[in-house]
């Protein structure tokens, strides 16, 4: 079975995000970019499936700017076998919307015919949480989102999902789209031997036109604002003091 893992290049989770002065988005020039952490978990899971003999090839795909090549190389250095880069933007500030990404991924799936698409549940930049679901709908495949455990057996995937208030376990027929949550695994670091091999692994470059997809944005960003600055806290000595402070503040 082949596993396809879409990976997105996003602002590194350690970077302190700054809003661009014109409010059109977040400043991405000269900031550290990394693989979306949920996608890292998906790559890790795919590699584990391969190590367990449940998958025989892990293909990673990224849709975005040319620099997403670095993200793909990272996935290859973790142990993925092959990469596809769909160059869909030339400005780092241009985000490709979930629907366009899902349509391109559908094209990739039709070419690659994977038995499983493992995606991050969402990208930490826009937190859309949409691409996996849209892809499943476009393909007419079953989907299992927010996976915290995946077992592949007899052409099905048994997926434990983290839902509000608990865990839900469902079985989906393969091929399927599964999106992964934080607790699924702890991704490995790229290993030095794999880093040395990464460059020799194939990385194919494509464009949205190859899949007949138009990536023109359909959404318009009206404003981007910093969250309000947090007020300094106060340390209280006792419950009584806490209660009186809360009363003072008029919250109880």
């Amino acid at each position: 079975m082949k596993v396809l893992v879409p990976v997105k290049r996003v602002i590194d989770y350690n970077v302190k995000v700054r809003v661009k002065p014109d409010g059109s988005g977040v400043d991405l020039a000269n900031v550290k970019m990394s693989m979306n952490p949920f996608d890292e978990i998906a790559v890790e899971e795919a590699i584990r499936l391969k190590e367990a003999g449940k998958a025989d090839e892990v293909v990673v795909v990224s849709i975005g700017v040319k620099q997403a090549q670095e993200t793909l190389r990272t996935a290859l250095a973790m142990g993925a076998d092959r990469a596809i880069l769909v160059v869909a933007a030339d400005d780092v500030h241009q985000d490709i919307e979930p629907l366009a990404v899902a349509k391109i991924l559908k094209g990739v799936v039709e070419e690659e015919k994977p038995g499983l698409v493992l995606a991050g549940k969402q990208a930490i930049d826009n937190d859309m949480n949409a691409t996996g679901q849209m892809l499943a709908a476009l393909l007419g495949w079953p989907q299992a989102t927010f996976a915290s455990k995946i077992e592949i057996d007899d052409g099905t995937a048994l997926v434990t999902r983290e839902v509000d208030g608990g865990l839900q376990t469902i079985r989906v027929k393969l091929p399927a789209v599964v999106t992964v949550d934080l607790r699924l695994n702890e991704p490995r670091y790229a290993s030095l031997p794999n880093i040395m091999k990464a460059k020799k692994k194939p990385l194919e470059e494509k464009t949205p036109a190859d899949y007949g997809v138009d990536v023109t944005p359909r959404l318009e960003v009206l404003a981007t604002e910093e969250p309000p600055a947090r007020q300094a806290g106060q340390i209280v000595g006792s419950v009584d003091e806490l209660v009186s402070k809360l009363k003072e503040a008029g919250v109880i």
């Binding site: 350690n14 990394s34 670095e70 190389r73 990272t74 250095a77 670091y189 790229a190 030095l192 880093i195 040395m196 990464a198 460059k199």
Partner: peptide, 17 residues
């Protein structure tokens, strides 16, 4: 830096962080 060197730097940096 070569691609390998970029990856080495990124990996060690990530490990340290």
């Amino acid at each position: 830096l070569s691609e390998e060197q970029e990856l080495i730097v990124a990996t060690v940096r990530q490990f340290v962080e």
